[in-house]
Design a protein around this nucleic acid. Structure first.
Lengths: 230, 230
DNA sequence: TTCGTTTTTTGATGAATGTCAAAAACTTAA
DNA sequence: TTAAGTTTTTGACATTCATCAAAAAACGAA
């Protein structure tokens, strides 16, 4: 777990995604932590499109968001959030995959995954301002957009429709978590794996078995056996 | 499970809680479903005091809430919400206790408990407008305050501080659920019982063992054995 | 490609927990 | 208070799953 990396900030305008990705890949190899800062007239299209599915925002609120979100590109296995530190950002995952995990008796326990169009953060730390108990680690090279808690709070006081948007987002995330909770606690391991296969096959396709086993609350050996007998 | 009961609406002003409780008790015996309608200048004090811990409301917003919440008093074993029906109310539990449960393969699975100062509803049904999959049943005679989704939405559009309050409430409920999730899935049965003993002893004191076992995801027999060896 | 490392699979064993059944304790209503 | 019903406890046994160890497969860097 590398807590201290060399950082590069790159400001850009009208750069192709492919070029951007290649550049980042190159810098990852040199062990740099890359933070791309897009011109404000660019991008966040996907973010704005996504939140439209929650609630419609005024043009002013959209412009304000554009100002405050900062692009961040991280490579596979890098950490977005590390346990013990206060997490001051809320991130939108534009492209890629990551996992939230914490350490229990020396073992890593993965308790959630994030994919395209998810809002991710250590919610506990972000909301309470206490140090995070969980780590967030990249499973693939990913493109994220981050906003600080201060910026977000400022915007929430300026734009009422943003407050409503966030409330609706929390509602959605709440019932999603509730569903996950019921699945996790009250169904057998094999059934939970079946559910995963049917409802979120992308998890199985993109995440190594070990993490999935941990996520399902079973040992990797047991999951391997379940999988072998379909 | 009685879906259709005789109802009494009682409008009152300046009635002692003891008298109210005695009256309700009497009516429960006669198998009435009691709905008390307080004069708007009375009560909801506890509710308003409680939500102050989340966010301060303007006097106008407080007055608006007073108008919209309706008192509801139910007896032990009665149902607040039944599976299959759309739950259109959000409730504040002033006094009493209840459980949320659903049916899985013919067995009742209790997945949460509610106590004093909790907001309760079938969140999935309330938020999505779909029929509830869970039942909410009273564990003790309880005093609740309910608001309809329509009223709430109307108030949210009128009072921005209410929107903020609700967002903050969702945040709290979200991280509370997340904690419960991690506890549930990744700790052993005995440890979960220990946690319950330490963190929420009121659950153990006020809820029958069978429901607690179900809540912990273990059989009543196993819980009985865990308990016998402390 | 090849070597070394990590991940996944397979097998043997033991611990934890579920299930069924019956007894004991507790509740409730008449 | 009793009698009926419900909940909790106890015992015997079966099942599920974790653990440890070792082999096989997949992955990654040189």
């Amino acid at each position: 777990m590398q807590l201290c990396k060399r950082q590069v900030w790159i400001c850009y305008k009208h750069v192709l995604n492919e070029v951007k990705a290649a550049l980042c890949q190159f810098l990852f190899c040199l062990d740099f932590h890359v933070i791309l800062k897009a011109s404000t007239d660019l991008l966040i299209k996907q973010l704005l499109n996504h939140i439209k599915t929650y609630h419609h925002l005024t043009d002013e609120a959209q412009a304000a968001l554009r100002e405050c979100f900062e692009e961040k590109i991280l490579g596979k296995t890098e950490y977005l959030v590390t346990a013990g530190k206060i997490c001051k950002h809320l991130y939108f995952l534009e492209r890629g995959a990551l996992r939230g995990f914490y350490n229990l008796d020396g073992k890593d326990i993965t308790h959630w995954f994030g994919f395209e169009n998810d809002f991710v953060t250590s919610f506990h730390s972000f909301i309470t301002g206490e140090p995070s108990v969980e780590n967030i680690q990249l499973l693939e090279g990913s493109v994220l957009w981050g906003i600080t808690k201060e910026s977000l709070n400022r915007l929430l006081n300026l734009h009422n429709d943003l407050e409503k948007l966030l409330r609706i987002a929390y509602e959605k995330y709440y019932i999603r978590l509730e569903e996950r909770y019921v699945n996790a606690q009250f169904k057998a391991a094999a059934e939970r794996y079946q559910n995963l296969l049917e409802q979120t096959p992308h998890i199985i396709e993109r995440v190594p078995l070990g993490h999935i086993a941990s996520y399902l609350g079973i040992s990797a050996e047991t999951l391997s056996r379940i999988r072998s007998r379909f």
